[in-house]
Amino acid sequence: MDLLLNHFWELTITGLAFGAIYALIALGYTLVYGVLRLINFAHSEVFMWGSFAAVWVLLAIGGGKATGAGLVGYLIVGFLAAMLVSALVALALEFVAYRPLRKRNSPPLIALISAIGASYTLSEAMGLRDKPFKAMGLDVKLGDYVGRPREASPFPLQINTVRLFRIGDYQVSNKDLIVLGSAIVMMVVLDQFVKRSRLGRGIRAVAQDPEAAALMGVNRDRVIRLTFVLGGAMAGAAAMMYLIKVGQTRYNAGFLLGVKAFTAAVLGGIGNLRGALLGGFVLGVAESYGSAIFGSNWKDVVSFTLLVVILLFRPTGLLGESLGKARA
């Protein structure tokens, strides 16, 4: 408890930073569930592929040598690369793993099994990425990209930690501002897009009543594709923030983060965009406080215990509204 009291603001801001990452990934779970009533367990691997896309693109364009103002440009490129690749992987996932089942009116359990299979496929494909290039004799030439596939791949940008201003006992750094600022911008943009745009209204209409939406001329397949693309883009943005904060990625980096993000979505009220954001921040801060009180080894125990306690008293989550309602 003394550690919590003595480092309250440091733990709070660190928790909010990781909570922002959880929240952005959770948006993908919430969007897909809101429209399809499907838990997309492969979404964590969409995040992981986005993190590798950012690492590889920045490595290819020489991001490791970036300094000063040029660093901002490389960060923008990294965000765009991660979001684009994650969106494309999510779209391919919908096309291969879910659309054929949806066309055949398969029960939800079959789609869930397909999601789990797709998750392992994407993870192991990244973990075995050296095999096809080794067969073609390109593993040495492309060693920076496919070498040591089961080990961590470092983030090529060297971002020096700069303390900017003090809040209580903690000096907020440039990395804290980049992660929290980027997350808040992405959340606000997505929230306003779903709330105010024509395509966003289509998403809410399908989430609320697919049959009525179809009668009103809403193309359900187009809405579903858009939902996967938006969720994938948010996961890509989260991947770049994760790299900034943690400094490396792995072929299985998405597993635990995916579980945490799904927990955040359920905590806030799965199917609710603002609930996913709230759940992410609550979970991140609870983890940070829990590690200070009980020790870092108990961090995950605290997180999931919090989930159980909240759902005992609030089964629909903290907000509990569906994506189809006006406050989505």
Rank of each mutant, 00 (worst) to 15 (best):
V309L: 15
S182N: 00
V35L: 06
L138S: 02
L31R: 12
S114H: 03
L190T: 12
A265W: 12
Q208K: 14
A152I: 05
S106Q: 06
M83Q: 08
V194E: 00
S119T: 06
M83E: 12
G137L: 06
A90Q: 06
F95L: 14
M136P: 01
F52Y: 15
L75M: 15
L199A: 09
F52I: 03
L16F: 14
F52L: 02
G217Q: 07
W298Y: 15
V140M: 03
A328K: 08
M186S: 13
K260L: 14
P156N: 01
P107S: 08
M48S: 01
L278Q: 06
L312G: 14
L24S: 02
G275Q: 10
T227W: 04
D300L: 08
L31C: 08
L59H: 02
S123E: 15
L277I: 15
F262R: 01
L164R: 13
R163G: 15
V206P: 12
M186E: 00
F95T: 09
L273D: 10
L226S: 13
A125M: 15
A60M: 14
G62S: 08
S119D: 08
G269A: 11
G117H: 05
V57G: 08
L27F: 09
S106D: 09
L122Q: 07
D176K: 08
A92C: 07
T12D: 06
S119L: 13
R129L: 02
A276R: 06
L283S: 09
G236T: 03
V188E: 00
G68H: 07
T67F: 09
G268R: 11
K245H: 10
N6L: 05
I76Y: 00
S173P: 05
S153L: 05
L84H: 04
K134M: 09
G202I: 07
A53W: 03
L215H: 14
F8W: 09
K195C: 01
R104A: 15
V185P: 01
K141R: 11
L312I: 08
A152F: 13
G231H: 03
L180G: 06
E10K: 02
G73A: 12
K325D: 14
L38T: 04
N6Y: 04
S106H: 05
P154D: 09
V185H: 01
G317R: 12
N160Q: 13
L318G: 10
L5H: 01
A87H: 03
Y145F: 15
L142G: 10
V308N: 03
L311M: 10
V308Y: 04
V223I: 15
V146F: 14
V32H: 05
R150I: 05
F294R: 03
S197P: 06
G63H: 01
R198D: 05
I13Q: 02
A20K: 09
N252W: 04
A233T: 02
T14W: 03
L199F: 08
